[in-house]
Amino acid sequence: MSNLISALDKATDNSGIAKIEEIGLQGMITLRGDLSKAAVKKAATSVTGVEMPTLGHANHDGASGLCWMSTDELLVLCPYDQVADTLAKMHTALGKAHALAVDVSDARASLRVSGPNAREVMAKLAPVDLSPEAFKPGMFRRTRMAQVAAAFWMVDDATFQIVCFRSNAQYVFDLLKVAAQNGSEVGFFK
């Protein structure tokens, strides 16, 4: 059996104004279909144990969760070693509903930015209003970070979790490291 490792093998950087970590392997399943259909909703909620997220939100509980990606797409999070089981359960729940569920875990990387300056570090990189009034814990946003596509949500008031393509993991990690350089606090959200 080959030794499975994530894109950056849990690299961390704590030298700057926020802690940056690659959080290792995270199971991710893309679910596309009409999100108002009962079978699609059930396939998503039954395997994760969380409620359907509303527009622009993410609901999660540890490594399991649901993120609202677009009007017809959900990102289903689950523990990495349970992806095959989860996918099988989802296919059973979907039945004949017109929908698609695919394992994309190995196409992606997950990173976490935490600390009191996390908001500032993220705000330097994404064209998103990240003021505490506009972007709150539980909110999810698909956007870009500098030159690559990324999605992130706030786990709590000082933690962002980021999903990007695996091939961009090093780029995003380096990007965050530069944005979190010592002495680079802007103080905009204080």
């Binding site: 990606m69 677009s70 009007t71 946003r141 698909r142 956007t143 596509a149």
Partner: peptide, 8 residues
């Protein structure tokens, strides 16, 4: 097209 967002 909202290419870095919902893709629509």
């Amino acid at each position: 097209r909202h290419n870095n967002g919902c893709g629509k």
